[in-house]
Design a protein around this nucleic acid. Sequence first.
DNA 1: AATTATATTTAGGATTCCTAATTAATAGGA
DNA 2: TCCTATTAATTAGGAATCCTAAATATAATT
Lengths: 217, 217
Amino acid sequence: MTEGSEGGTGRHVVAGLAKIGMALRSRAWREGERLGLTPTQAQALGLVRARAPRPVRLSQVADDLQVTQATASDAVSALVRKGLLSKDRAPDDARAVALRLTAAGEAAADGIAEWPDFLLRSVDALDECEQAAFLRGLVKMIRDLQVRGDIPVARMCVTCRFFRPHVHDDPRAPHHCGFVDAPLGDRDLRIDCPEQEQASPGQQEAAWDRFVRNGAA
Amino acid sequence: MTEGSEGGTGRHVVAGLAKIGMALRSRAWREGERLGLTPTQAQALGLVRARAPRPVRLSQVADDLQVTQATASDAVSALVRKGLLSKDRAPDDARAVALRLTAAGEAAADGIAEWPDFLLRSVDALDECEQAAFLRGLVKMIRDLQVRGDIPVARMCVTCRFFRPHVHDDPRAPHHCGFVDAPLGDRDLRIDCPEQEQASPGQQEAAWDRFVRNGAA
DNA sequence: AATTATATTTAGGATTCCTAATTAATAGGA
DNA sequence: TCCTATTAATTAGGAATCCTAAATATAATT
């Protein structure tokens, strides 16, 4: 029985994720027109905003968007041409650039934040408990992807040096974030936290073990 | 407390889904090179195979891939040029085309089936129970997207005229598929079933109510 | 000082993706 | 039957995506 549906479930999940991915992409194309931005440009802009006020380098854009540096360079050039990003030399490395939002870029970035709202509405079709379970599943998958090297960065709580899993008794918020110094529940786990700082591999491993083992309950 | 993290969870989920979507897309580009296919072409080819032996129309490709007919036409033309698809007039409608796999197309389609394996491996990082919950969440979200009109087709069990939710006592397989005439569990719910036939809106609504209400347990 | 590595850009080319206009065939109504 | 939508697909035109490969400049290493 355990084997009867084996593989099937996983394939259905992959099919579903692919479908949502397509919806996100096609939506990004259609909505982008409103602001005169293409999906890649919008993502690049969003990334610079997420990392603000620290300037961003081109290679960070390429890594985060999972495209080559050539593609990232194209998108960033377009954004500079449109006056949404400024591109200076990085102060600490004359080879690198320092990307920052212009005033117009900040305004545009506010507009694009609303894009995935159509998906957010559908996430709300899940009740609180289901959302937490779903997020936990996502976190596990994305961490696994990162460990395998199939995904580059991923600024997640579970790989952050500030994350301390299962240190509180409250089952709704058993973890702790040392950065904001506050309890954290499964439903609060972040996947792209601006404050995240990668923990050492050893720390990561230890925290992950504690997170997964204790989480069965 | 319930409100303290409200909205946050949904945003984290969207961020995670977007990250996986990007990984799927970038992987498709890199792997596609091996067979000389781009992501859109590969998806189109996969769609034709999934629907085989019935021929596929261009508008089906466009709907399923969520691109315009112009884009779909480009991709299909490329596949025909590469000898992977045949394009005839549809017998029942002289305006439409009938797309079929060639022998070479079948071979190529087998190759692309392996692509999302990197993601499938990471889905396996979830235990059986988590996978089922995750799939259930996906099904709910995708159905909601479909109801809202944010996603076009979606050949899901939960909107199929053969689907009868909660008719068995076995908690591991409470549903029933009238097409294969077999019990079905949450972990078996399909998102892209070749045999799916859309139920009437009334039937869909009734089945969905029964599916969701009884599912809390 | 010479070498190697890193950060970015440019060149070239196939594809994606859109809108808008065209062609052809079907469907419905007068 | 004829006329008018509607529908299926293609084409044209143009900006953007995305790749590889090669070039440029700076940093780090030896």
